[in-house]
């Protein structure tokens, strides 16, 4: 088990394995997102109170979930990089941070668009919305810190450290609607009780969530691979690989 993880931690081996997985992930992501969009936006029923604006849910919930999952992964990668000095963890972190920031922004924008017709306002400073905005700033900080040092290694460490500290915000976002009085409603889904939503609504939502996760995995594989090529461009295995694909001898 540990040997397999160690082997996968080598950029060359990860590059090859990810290259084989990549097309399947992209195909799965496109299929799930297409099916989920059609199901959620066309065939799923409207809500008894909100009407058709409830369909924003099929974009809002996956983006908000991804925004937080990506941050947890970012912090885990940061921890692995700081403690075990595994370069691949830092390459992964560099590859996924912009995607997480984009998901956070999309969750905020789709939430604002949903809030306007249902709540009567696009923004309030309640605990859920504010903690999500802080998450966006944390993402931007993690991305900016990486480029703020002349030495790439120092930037990587500072950014990993901020990701680790910032992960404290994730449980705050999750439980903000339970700990404080907020305009945002409490969670519909929980592990201990059935969802307060019929299957005709949560099934398409499940497909959309799975599609967003598949999209994330596919994008993370592709972006990490190009990050590997960029950073390892001087190593022998990359030169040999390039030589094999272009048909020229490695210099």
């Amino acid at each position: 088990m540990w040997r397999a993880i160690h082997r996968l931690g080598s950029p060359a081996i990860f590059y090859a394995v990810a290259g084989r997985l990549q097309p399947w992930c992209w195909a799965l992501a496109i299929a799930l997102l297409l099916a989920g969009s059609l199901w959620g936006l066309v065939w799923a029923p409207a809500d008894y109170q909100q009407g058709d604006s409830v369909r924003i849910l099929y974009v809002h919930v996956p983006t908000a979930l991804l925004a937080q999952s990506v941050f947890v992964l970012l912090a885990a990668a940061g921890g692995v990089f700081l403690v075990w000095r595994i370069k691949l963890a830092d390459m992964l972190a560099a590859a996924i941070a912009p995607f997480g920031a984009l998901m956070t922004l999309l969750a905020l924008v789709s939430g604002a668009l949903w809030g306007l017709p249902t709540w009567g306002t696009w923004w309030v400073w309640d605990a859920r919305l504010t903690s999500m905005l802080i998450q966006l700033f944390l993402y931007l900080g993690v991305i900016a810190l990486r480029g703020a040092y002349t030495a790439a290694e120092s930037g990587a460490r500072a950014s990993a450290l901020l990701a680790l500290v910032g992960v404290v915000n994730v449980p705050i976002i999750k439980f903000s609607v339970d700990w404080w009085q907020t305009l945002h409603q409490a969670a519909t889904f929980s592990l201990v009780r059935p969802p307060s939503m019929p299957a005709s609504m949560w099934l398409p939502l499940l497909v959309m969530v799975a599609g967003f996760y598949a999209f994330f995995v596919a994008l993370a594989l592709t972006r990490t691979r190009s990050e590997i090529l960029r950073r390892e461009s001087r190593t022998r295995w990359v030169r040999e690989r390039v030589a094999r694909t272009t048909g020229k001898a490695a210099r």
């Binding site: 249902t118 009567g120 306002t121 409603q185 307060s196 939503m197 019929p198």
Partner: peptide
């Protein structure tokens, strides 16, 4: 000066509600 609506975490199609 302003009234905002809250909604709870329950969703259902109109036919079910009826």
């Amino acid at each position: 000066a302003r009234v905002l609506a809250r909604h709870d975490e329950t969703y259902m199609p109109p036919e079910v509600a009826a």
